[in-house]
């Protein structure tokens, strides 16, 4: 049974003329970390928001425990599928002390909790209980992100959907949070969808990877395969992007492969929109098969 997935998901922003996410199908299993990479504007964050049902889909479905998400199942879904965003400053109410921020999910879902429950949550993200009376402004950026994480863990979720969870943090703190995410994921058997523009971050945590370009999945597979032996020309370029010169990057209009203007393998066959082909490791390119 499908644990958590999106099927043929397309999302269009208000007043936009094209879809930000185009016909995306992805799945994540318990204990698995799906990394989603792509450049800015590729639709990564939009995909995550639609997956969380925070943005309406133009077409396609979010699947949870084998069934399409409905307004009736949304409340249960929200409880067990938790988001973690880039900027904990925005995720935490500046007026609420840590104690109140952590208590809120219990109150919303009418669950019993005690001071010890809250302290235990902080302990799980390696923060001392002394922080309970503090407000976000009195915390460091790393501490704020841990509090946001503790809050996401409050109701024992089954999955975390994370959008650039360490991008706003300093390098020395980034490593602390990445290590913590890994430990929590293993200890709780969480499923994770991790969106990041930082390939090294995704590489550190992800077991499977999907590469997004212009709203479409152009490649997906086990992390070791995608990073070790990329198939799509875009993935190859993304991974090789050390220091190199390029022209005026442009995204080509559909139909056709959106990457064709930037691709040195482009051929007339690229004027048709390619589909993913391959087994566990698949990519969408008619030229490099």
């Amino acid at each position: 049974m499908t644990f958590l997935a999106v099927e043929h998901l397309s999302v269009r922003h208000r007043r936009a003329v094209t879809d930000a996410v185009r016909d995306v199908s992805l799945e994540v299993a318990p204990g698995e970390v799906l990394g989603v990479v792509g450049e800015s504007g590729s639709g990564k964050s939009t995909l995550l928001k639609a997956w969380l049902s925070l943005l309406p889909a133009r077409s396609g479905l979010v699947l949870w425990q084998g069934r399409p998400l409905t307004s009736a199942s949304l409340r249960a879904f929200r409880r067990v599928v938790q988001p973690v965003f880039q900027d904990p400053r925005a995720a935490l109410d500046p007026r609420l002390a840590v104690r109140e921020a952590l208590a809120e999910p219990f109150q919303v879902h009418r669950e019993p909790f005690s001071e010890a429950t809250l302290a235990r949550l902080l302990d799980e993200v390696q923060l001392p209980a002394e922080l309970l009376p503090r407000r976000p402004a009195a915390l460091s950026a790393g501490q704020r992100q841990r509090v946001a994480l503790a809050r996401a863990l409050a109701l024992s979720p089954r999955a975390l959907l994370l959008d650039e969870p360490v991008s706003a943090l300093d390098v020395s703190v980034q490593a602390q949070v990445l290590t913590l995410l890994h430990q929590l994921q293993v200890a709780r058997g969480l499923a994770m969808v991790l969106v990041s523009h930082d390939l090294a971050v995704v590489r550190t945590l992800a077991t499977r990877v999907a590469v997004l370009f212009a709203g479409r999945v152009v490649e997906q597979g086990p992390a070791a395969d995608v990073f070790g032996d990329p198939g799509h020309p875009y993935t190859r370029q993304l991974l090789a992007a050390g220091i190199e010169r390029g022209g005026d990057w442009a995204t080509a209009p559909e139909p056709g492969c959106a990457f064709r203007l930037r691709c040195r393998h482009a051929q007339p066959s690229c004027l048709e929109t390619p589909t993913l082909s391959g087994g566990a490791h698949a990519w969408a390119c008619p030229v490099l098969k």
């Binding site: 300093d170 703190v173 490593a175 602390q176 290590t179 890994h182 590489r203 550190t204």
Partner: peptide, 22 residues
């Protein structure tokens, strides 16, 4: 420490304990 804390994709990065002081 900074160099070791940078994620590389080969295993977990090694954090520097503590935080930058205000």
């Amino acid at each position: 420490g900074l160099l070791a804390a940078r994620p590389t994709g080969r295993g977990l990065p090694v954090p520097i304990p503590g935080a930058i002081p205000p």
